[in-house]
């Protein structure tokens, strides 16, 4: 791009399409795996929790908490909130750290969902069906965000939008799993 000129529209479109394709491929791949794979119905490790499901409910809650840190740090970096008044130099690193930890905490949860329980394809099982769709969508959106983060010269609205989509999907996942677990099975139910 020549300094002072408008960004190459075609290049921007190519990067956006690449992000969408990567995200779509990840989401569809997980969905296909979950649909075709025979669920093992086996428990995984439980650490100090009573059962794998308890571990999953709490890990997912930790993921949401870390995602909230991501949202707050992003809002501060974009100047949408002014607390703290002077943005500390490590804010960006904390943003990345919380996102990386959230992703790592999500992996064993997703693994058990896909490997042990599979994709719920019966729409009459509303909660599980929505949860399955959102789970695949979340990782697709996350992959798209990773592409967008590393792409240059994209319009300013793209990254916050994709980040917001990732967060919304995550909240939906939490509502259809952890919140349901805490309300149905019990709280805190370690």
């Amino acid at each position: 791009m020549v300094a002072g000129s408008r960004p190459d529209v075609a290049a921007v479109e190519r990067r956006l399409i690449a992000a969408l394709l990567v995200g779509g491929a990840v989401a569809v791949s997980l969905g296909v795996y979950g649909r075709l794979h025979d669920p093992t119905h086996h428990a995984l490790f439980t650490l100090f929790f009573t059962a794998t499901l308890n571990l999953k409910a709490w890990f997912a809650t930790v993921v949401v908490a870390l995602a909230l840190v991501q949202i707050l740090t992003a809002l501060r970096m974009y100047g949408k909130i002014n607390v703290p008044r002077v943005a500390p130099p490590w804010l960006g690193d904390v943003h990345r750290l919380s996102g990386t930890l959230a992703f790592m905490f999500s992996l064993p949860v997703a693994y058990h969902c896909l490997w042990s329980l599979g994709f719920e394809s019966h729409a009459d099982q509303t909660r599980r069906f929505v949860h399955s769709i959102l789970g695949c969508f979340f990782y697709g959106a996350f992959a798209a965000k990773m592409v967008v983060v590393r792409a240059r010269n994209l319009p300013g609205w793209v990254l916050p939008t994709v980040g917001g989509v990732v967060f919304s999907a995550l909240v939906g996942i939490w509502l259809t799993s952890s919140l349901w677990f805490f309300r149905t099975v019990g709280f805190p139910k370690i």
Partner: peptide, 8 residues
């Protein structure tokens, strides 16, 4: 085989 879905 069962505790995964039905609880420990």
């Amino acid at each position: 085989n069962c505790s995964t879905c039905h609880g420990a």
